[in-house]
């Protein structure tokens, strides 16, 4: 069903495009800087933080998740881009399965997003987080998983959209609540009940929780729950993206 040479080429094409897109690379660096500066240093200097951890350190895993989330949705736009500029047709008339195209786009989007998440790791020395090499290494597959899940979700949304503007509007309604209600910026445990409930159904909460446990040693949910939710959600999102692709495109 999956055509690996086609999948690889679809992935490679998006990598070539990324390497030529300086603005996207610059943007992926600027985003965490802004959030860390404004929230981390600005807000952080006004109150002590949580669990005895300085706020900027507490925020840091959330910022990694944030960059993954934003980058994932931005790379999902490429499917609208491909449709708008006709290149999608080149893929659709080729003797390859729709699944290969969907998985190829999810893989390339997730890679781009993962790389942008890794850029955030460069700020570790500035935010007072001390993390051993093994925990850092363990963080990478978690980041990749989050990237895959969010990109697939983005593709699912993008494949239902016919314009950049439409996608931008919907994406904001998905990205913003997902980010703010994932425990990335404040702990869900002490939040009002209603917000907590939303946080519990937000799959990103479990990704943030895992990252925070790896980076800072504190967590809210059982590890098994974090892993299971993340894996299940990734599988569901990839499946959803494939389904939307086969149906709509």
């Amino acid at each position: 069903m999956i055509d690996y040479s086609a999948l690889l080429m679809i992935w490679r094409r998006d990598m070539i495009r990324l390497s030529r897109d300086r603005a996207q690379i610059a943007g992926s660096l600027a985003r965490p800087i802004l959030w860390l500066l404004v929230l981390g240093f600005g807000l952080g200097s006004a109150f002590p933080g949580f669990h005895g951890i300085p706020y900027i350190s507490y925020l840091f895993p959330g910022i990694i998740a944030m960059n993954l989330l934003f980058a994932s949705f931005l790379s999902a736009i490429s499917i609208i881009w491909d449709r708008e500029f006709g290149f999608l047709k080149e893929m659709l008339v080729a003797p390859i399965s729709r699944i290969s195209i969907a998985v190829g786009k999810a893989a390339s989007g997730a890679t781009v997003s993962f790389l942008q998440g890794c850029l955030v790791l460069a700020f570790i020395p500035l935010v007072g987080v001390s993390i051993g090499p093994w925990r850092l290494l363990a963080g990478l597959p978690v980041m990749l998983l989050i990237a895959f899940a969010m990109t697939s979700l983005g593709l699912l949304v993008a494949s239902r959209m016919s314009s950049f503007e439409g996608f931008g509007t919907i994406a904001n309604f998905v990205i913003m609540p997902m980010f703010f209600l994932s425990g990335a910026v404040f702990p869900l445990a002490t939040a009002p009940r209603a917000l907590q409930m939303v946080g519990l159904i937000n799959p990103l909460s479990y990704g943030v929780d895992l990252l925070r446990w790896l980076f800072l040693g504190v967590r809210q949910f059982p590890l098994m729950l974090d892993f299971s939710v993340l894996l299940l959600f990734t599988a569901a999102a990839v499946g959803g993206a494939v389904w939307a692709f086969c149906r709509r495109l």
Partner: peptide, 22 residues
């Protein structure tokens, strides 16, 4: 309507085509 990837070179566009046609 145009259906090339304008951010790739001609060579890369053709390479892509060759790959997806096995």
């Amino acid at each position: 309507d145009p259906s090339l990837d304008e951010r790739l070179t001609a060579w890369e566009n053709l390479e892509f085509h060759g790959m997806i046609y096995h």
